[in-house]
Amino acid sequence: MIRYLGKRIIFMLISLFLIVTATFFIMKAVPGGPFTSEKQVPPEIKAALEAKYKLNLPMHEQYFEYLKGVVTWELGPSFTEKSSTVNDMINRGFPVSAHLGAQALLLAIFGGITLGVIAALNHNKWQDYSAMVIAVLGLSVPSFILASFYQYIFAINLGWFPIAKWEGFEYTILPSLALAASPMAFIARLTRSNMIEVMGQDYIKTAKAKGLHTVAITVKHAIRNALLPVVTYLGPLIAGILTGAFVIERIFGVPGLGREFVLSITNRDYTVIMGTTVFYSMILVVMILIVDIAYTLVDPRIKLSDAGKE
C-alpha cells in the first residue's frame, strides 16, 4: 500500500509537471497577449510593461521562471488586477468556490443516490418514473437557463431568496441548487441503472433466499456494488463543479475562482492562467487518487498495486 501510494504520488508530480508545461506552451501559442488592447500603447510603454512582467525574457527562461514560481508557490502579480498577486486572488476566490462546490456536491451525491436507489427499488413503479422525471429535467435544462429560471421564480417572483450576491447562507441556496442539478441527475440515473443490474445478480438472489431483510440487502450488497461507476465519476465531477461554476457565479454574482479562471484566459492574464490551472490540476489529481483508493473500499475485488495485471 505504501509503495503504491509513493508511486502514485510520483506519478502525480509528473502529471502536474506535464500539465504545467502543456498549459504554458498552449497559452503562449494562443494569439494575443495581456497587453493587446483596442488602444495600443506606444512600443516603449509596451516594452516597459513586458520588462516589468519578465515577458521580455526568452521563452525557455520564462518557462523556468514559471516553474520556479509554481514550486515555491509564489505565483507572481496579476496582469489585470494591478494591485493583487495571483496568490491573493486564489486565497480570496477559492474558499468561496469550495463552499459553493461542496454544498452542490453534497446535494448532488445524496440527492442523486437517493433518487437512484428509490427508482431502482421501485423499478417501473410511479416512484421510479417521478424520480427519473426529476433527473431528466435536471439534465435537459442547461445550467444557465436553470439558474436564470430559479432566480426568476424563487428570488424575483416569490422573494424567498436574495437575487444575487454572496453574503450569507440564504445567498448560497439558489446557486448550489443550480450547480447541483446536472450532476445530481447524472448520478441518479447512473445509480438507478447500476442498482437494477446489481439487483438482478445471483448474490442478491442468494441473499434474498437466505431471508435477509430488503434494507440489509440494499445497503450491504446492492448500493455498495452499484456505486462503483458513480465513484468513477466523482473526480471529474469535482473538477467540473469547481471550474464549471463560471456561469452560475456570474448570474448570481458569486465571487468565486471559476470566473477568475475563465476571465484570466480571455484577458490573457498569464500568471493567473498558470496559477489557477496549477491549483485546479492539483485538486484534480488528488481527487483522482482519492477516487482510485475509494475504489478498493467500495469494491473489494479491485486491488490496488499491480494486481490488475495478469
Partner: peptide, 18 residues
C-alpha cells in the same frame, strides 16, 4: 486609454450571457 476593460467587458458578454 480606457479601452482596456473592454476586453473584460466583451469577454464577459461572450461567456456569460448578455
Amino acid at each position: 486609454m480606457k479601452k482596456n476593460v473592454f476586453a473584460l467587458v466583451s469577454s464577459i458578454a461572450v461567456l456569460g450571457t448578455a
